[in-house]
Design a protein around this nucleic acid. Structure first.
Length: 613
DNA sequence: CATCTT
DNA sequence: AAGATG
């Protein structure tokens, strides 16, 4: 199908060869043209009526920020530093002629819906960078310190990783044998967001990919340092995934500098002396890289990284368990289940994390959040008209896509949590019986009554015996964690609005698929697009604590931590229950007043991503 | 104590 | 950061 016929595309930036190449091929295979050089444009004269409207600029998602629902790109951001001269010229052209810019993963979405859709959800505006400039970082003293610190540390980390994984050559071999599995995960990881950044595997596959890259793109980087550049890029990405932005940036800067260096690097000494951002530690790596052609531990490190990622992307599995399974060379949930059935029997909610693994790793469009809210509100109205509810979390922060749906319930002038919980439990059970709610993640006496069966069948499916001592909370809680799914029979269901999904899905290993809900769904019908199961949290708060509660549940988590730090620095304590000083409540009802007492200006929810004072 | 929630 | 849950 040639849905891109008559269209031309410019891809930005151009250094991320392995991921961009996928999109280049998708475009070419569907009748589109790729513009590589300025003369590609000047040769093709603009359309008399529509000018350059046949040209679309595509930007790699990792260079974008989401601001008030809209994608933005910062002019001075890494993007410019990632581009070579040809691409910079094209970038100037795009700016001058107001060429439409969209995020690159729209391409896969367009192929899915079989048409090109450009709207508020994927269009990008260019803005001035309010943050740090690369130049500032690289020339300031403080940064030089942090980069050199970074280098010694990463060396240690890699060494440790090698140590704990190459104790025997057997281990190394089993790692290599499992390359296929792990590769499957990382190659299908999403391009959007740090957590799921693709780590290209450093193996023959990549080499083959390079052969198929068009001659023009090959011509770009031929200073003979491709291996170094690729390795530095990989080191940078590993640290991004670990959440270590500083180290990641150290390697990224080194990578960019090496890319710009016009000669083939002959020795580590040469690199350290002549190229900026290369200190003793990176030089050492360059040395081994030049000598042996590879960096011991790197492949292992990235594989470990993606395996850990794979496990902890499952609800109920945290960093400790993921680390444990990782070090035991466990490659799949199924393997873990066979070795530790007790864990799954006790923490049965992991089985639902597994069942909905792929669904729960998908983002939810705002429009869908609203539909969930309608269903819940309608049912609540029948039970108790006086209880109100609002979506908090990323939805209140105005994100276009939300990770889950956080709903806060409260009742005017009511401070009795138990009272509210009773209604909420009834609400949840009714919605479960209506098959809107698919699963509960904790049990109360009443929830167990309706849900126990489902847990038992799920345990059976996993091949483990029932746990007679399943723990059931007897107290009335302030929260309920759920999985819920919109039915396709909802009248106003509209597939074209439903998913602007800028992600390549996080996928289960093939041997883990048998527990997944999507397996059954897919086998029933391919034509019928089903909604994914979504994570929904019900939270209850006292009327007197509604301000503190909203502040807490609106987040972001990072923002909360920063505000709470400020509270501490002023001798106060901030929780979801209120702002305290010496255990005396200062304020909990009025959200704005909490900001006042902390002496910070009120920050609107959309700006509560992170705080930088 | 690990995991989850923001 | 702080709290709830099993």
């Amino acid at each position: 199908m040639a849905i891109f016929k008559g269209r031309s595309f410019i891809l930005f930036p151009n250094n991320e060869v392995s991921s961009i190449n996928i999109f280049e091929n998708l475009i070419k295979n569907n009748g589109g043209k790729i513009i590589e050089y300025e003369h590609d444009i000047t040769n093709a004269s603009p359309d008399i009526n529509y000018g350059y409207s046949h040209i679309i600029g595509l930007v790699n998602d990792s260079y974008l920020t989401l601001n008030n629902n809209k994608y933005e790109i910062y002019e001075n951001n890494l993007l410019l530093n990632e581009m070579d001269l040809n691409k910079r010229k094209l970038w100037e052209f795009v700016k001058k002629n107001n060429i439409t810019l969209v995020n690159i993963s729209s391409v896969s979405f367009w192929l899915k819906v079989k048409k090109i859709l450009i709207n508020q959800d994927n269009i990008i505006t260019i803005t001035k960078d309010p943050g740090l400039h690369l130049e500032e970082i690289s020339t300031s003293d403080s940064c030089n310190q942090s980069t050199s610190e970074c280098e010694t540390d990463i060396g240690d980390i890699i060494n440790e990783l090698v140590k704990c994984n190459s104790g025997s050559s057997k281990n190394l071999n089993s790692n290599l044998n499992n390359a296929d599995n792990v590769g499957e995960v990382s190659s299908s990881g999403t391009l959007h967001g740090l957590k799921n950044e693709v780590i290209p595997q450093y193996n023959n596959e990549i080499e083959e990919d390079n052969k198929s890259i068009s001659a023009s793109s090959l011509a770009r980087n031929t200073n003979g340092n491709e291996l170094l550049i690729k390795t530095l890029d990989k080191l940078s990405k590993i640290h991004t995934i670990r959440g270590d932005e500083f180290r990641s940036r150290g390697y990224k800067l080194a990578k960019i500098s090496v890319s710009k260096y016009p000669h083939k690097i002959k020795s580590a000494k040469e690199a350290q002396e002549k190229i900026p951002h290369i200190g003793a530690s990176i030089a050492k790596k360059i040395e081994t890289l030049l000598k042996t052609g590879k960096l011991p531990g790197l492949e292992i490190a990235s594989k470990l990284e993606s395996r850990k990622e794979y496990f902890s992307s499952c609800y109920g599995i945290g960093p400790v368990t993921a680390e444990n399974w990782d070090s035991l060379q466990i490659n799949s949930l199924n393997e873990a289940l066979k070795r530790f059935p007790k864990i799954f029997q006790h923490d049965w909610s992991i089985l639902f994390g597994w069942k909905y693994y792929e669904d729960w790793n998908k983002k939810i469009p705002r429009s869908e959040c609203v539909k969930h809210m309608q269903i819940i509100k309608e049912e609540l109205k029948l039970l108790d008209d006086s209880i109100e509810c609002e979506i908090q979390g990323s939805f209140r922060r105005n994100r276009a896509l939300c990770g889950d749906i956080d709903i806060l319930f409260y009742k005017k002038e009511c401070d009795d949590i138990s009272d509210l919980y009773v209604v909420l439990e009834m609400l949840a059970i009714k919605l479960y019986k209506k098959k809107y709610i698919k699963c509960f993640l904790q049990l109360s006496k009443n929830i167990n009554l309706v849900f126990d069966n489902e847990i038992q069948t799920t345990l059976q499916k996993a091949g483990i015996s029932n746990n007679e001592f399943r723990s059931i909370s007897l107290t009335n809680r302030p929260k309920l964690f759920l999985g819920a799914k919109l039915s396709t029979t909802i009248p106003e269901f509209d597939t074209s609005l439903y998913t602007i999904n800028p992600e390549i899905d996080v996928k289960l290993h093939s041997e883990d698929k048998y527990m997944s809900s999507s397996v059954q769904a897919n086998s029933v019908s391919h034509a019928l697009e089903e909604y994914p199961c979504r994570r929904i949290d019900f939270f209850i708060c006292k009327w007197s604590e509604i301000g503190a509660s909203k502040l807490h549940y609106t987040g972001s988590g990072e923002f909360n931590r920063e505000v709470r730090k400020i509270a501490i620095s002023k001798g106060m304590k901030l929780t979801q229950h209120g702002l305290y000083q010496n255990d005396i409540l200062l304020e909990s009802f009025n959200e704005k007043r909490i900001f006042d007492l902390l002496d910070i200006p009120f920050i609107e929810p959309p700006d509560r991503q992170e705080l930088k004072f």
